[in-house]
């Protein structure tokens, strides 16, 4: 690979050298770097397998942190909305509940009716939310696997067999239109564009439960909203009737 091609492919360094060293005793990452520096004649940036592992961990943590922050924001927004909707629901139904109370239903019975309604709403949301989340996760996982297999195939063509050490992405700009490589890069780009957030965000295991909870909350909100709208509508009919 020439330096120019490597730069076009997004590499910061014009050339990579890979070396596999075996040490007889366990030594630190710093000691490995010091040893390799002492062997090399020209100064070079040295990246060890420990650095790659550490970077991978940082990437995962960063993706998790992004997901958690997104979830917390969504959660706060949903809780505020749900509380508001519940208050509206209680307010809209107060007249009905007081009518039922006057007909002989105790306050504990009223509470039971309200709670049952909420539980049914939550249950419906859990079922639909879980199904949607698993479906979404499956879809994204499939897309990721397609994306990764194309990347692996391309890297193999470029002579890179171990993608955990380094990899190259097919970029449309460096190939002529109509060539097989261009078509390959185009397919890769299209697939990459289907991810509306950084693909790394979809990979951590934390995403699925977060997706389920978020979808459940959102669906609860939707059902509560529809219920509140229906109540407002019927209250209006009664008010119109009174007038």
């Amino acid at each position: 690979m020439t330096a120019e091609t490597a730069e076009n492919l997004g590499f910061y360094y014009p050339e990579y050298y890979t070396a596999m060293l075996k040490f007889n005793e366990k030594i630190s990452n710093r000691e490995i770097k010091e040893y390799v520096s002492s062997v090399l004649k020209t100064p070079m940036r040295i990246t060890t397998i420990y650095d790659l592992e550490r970077n991978a961990k940082i990437n995962t943590l960063s993706a998790n942190a992004n997901a958690v922050i997104l979830f917390i924001l969504l959660f706060i927004l949903c809780i505020i909305s749900i509380l508001n909707l519940m208050n509206m629901n209680v307010k809209n139904n107060t007249e009905k509940f007081m009518t039922l109370h006057s007909l002989g239903l105790s306050f504990s019975g009223i509470k039971k009716i309200f709670m049952t309604g909420m539980m049914i709403t939550a249950l419906i949301s859990v079922i639909i939310g879980t199904a949607l989340s698993f479906g979404g996760k499956y879809f994204l996982q499939t897309k990721y696997e397609q994306w990764y297999s194309i990347l692996a195939e391309y890297n193999e063509m470029q002579g890179i067999t171990d993608m955990s050490v380094s990899f190259v992405k097919p970029v449309m700009g460096i190939y002529e239109e109509g060539t097989a490589e261009y078509a390959f890069a185009e397919k890769f780009q299209q697939l990459e564009d289907t991810f509306f957030l950084a693909k790394e965000m979809w990979l951590p295991d934390i995403i699925l439960p977060l997706c389920i909870i978020s979808t459940v909350i959102l669906l609860s909100m939707l059902i509560c909203s529809l219920s509140a709208v229906k109540n407002i509508k019927s209250e209006r009919i009664i008010e119109d009737d009174k007038n």
């Binding site: 007249e95 006057s102 002989g104 239903l105 209250e235």
Partner: peptide
Amino acid sequence: NDTKLSEFRLKNIGFVFQFFNLIPE
């Protein structure tokens, strides 16, 4: 208490209101 009073109301008292208070649904 509320439970006993509600039971008493259910068995012994009927209410008729000015605005009817029917359940619209």
